[in-house]
């Protein structure tokens, strides 16, 4: 009798164990869903933070560029004009004092050459601050003009291939590419002891690829990833939505590769 009651109790208890198991399983499944949703939310949040940082960077670079443009215009229009007037007055004085002593003529000549040097410097600085050529002729032409300038020195040879489609890109993107190219060329000339630089910028399937190499000594072991130049290149790359990779080539030399996806969306 006792055994029969025990069996009855057991028969009642066993389904309860099943119910408890179902409850536990239900909680576990809901918890898994919770973890998944939480992970997704955190990812979305991080993406928002990154987007916000990119936006901040973009606007700070924009402010920097606007300021450069203002300084370039001021230098060119005000200082340049003042120097031109000073040169004009000096030339007038030179004509009036033709009969004066030879030492005076030499002094005039000296002042004039100083003014002319200043005028050249003003033009160069204002062009560097805001590349007029880029605005007028586009990126491929501007880069080619730099190539001509550097190649004429005969110390280093630059080869640039740049698709014409790049000119259809927004100004901020073109300016970003120009500044990055200039910074990289400048770094190679200064530190790499290279003989050749190759730069390839092309647009394929709504993606822009920027590939820069030189045959110099490459990055040293104690290369500062947080150096000012490197930081500036990375910030610019990030502000135009690009992903930048830098390193040493297998056969020696330095390389920098940047891809910018969805360039049509940026237009």
């Amino acid at each position: 009798m006792e055994t029969s009651e025990e069996l009855n109790f057991l028969a009642t208890l066993l389904p309860l164990v099943g119910i408890l198991f179902i409850i536990a399983m239900g909680v576990v499944l809901l918890m898994q869903q919770f973890r998944k949703n939480l992970y997704r939310q955190k990812l979305a949040q991080e993406e928002l933070i990154t987007l916000h940082q990119q936006e901040l960077l973009r606007s700070s670079i924009q402010v920097q560029e606007d300021e450069r443009k203002r300084i370039a215009t001021d230098i060119h229009d005000e200082l340049g004009a003042t120097l031109s007037i000073a040169r004009m007055h000096l030339m007038a004085l030179e004509t009036q004092n033709k009969n004066n002593a030879v030492e005076n003529a030499a002094a005039f000549q000296n002042i004039r050459s100083l003014i002319e040097t200043s005028m050249t410097s003003v033009r160069r600085i204002s062009h560097e601050l805001m590349p007029q050529n880029l605005q007028m002729f586009g990126l491929p032409e501007t880069l080619q003009s730099i190539v001509k300038m550097v190649n004429s020195s005969n110390n280093i040879h630059i080869l640039i291939k740049c698709d014409e489609e790049v000119n259809d890109l927004p100004w901020a993107l073109k300016l970003g590419l120009y500044r990055i190219s200039l910074e990289l060329i400048n770094n190679t000339i200064k530190h790499a002891q290279a003989k050749e630089i190759c730069l390839d910028i092309h647009c394929r399937h709504n993606e822009l690829t920027f590939f820069y190499t030189d045959d110099g000594i490459g990055l040293s072991e104690n290369f500062e990833k947080n150096g000012l130049g490197q930081k500036s290149i990375e910030a610019r790359a990030m502000s135009i939505g690009g992903t930048l990779k830098v390193g040493n080539k297998k056969n020696g030399g330095f390389y920098a590769e940047m891809t910018i996806p969805d360039i049509q969306g940026k237009a």
């Binding site: 119910i19 179902i22 409850i23 239900g26 909680v27 809901l30 918890m31 919770f34």
Partner: peptide
């Protein structure tokens, strides 16, 4: 009861 216990535990 089973379903509400699951919800409340979660």
């Amino acid at each position: 009861s089973v379903l509400l216990i699951i919800f409340s535990l979660t």
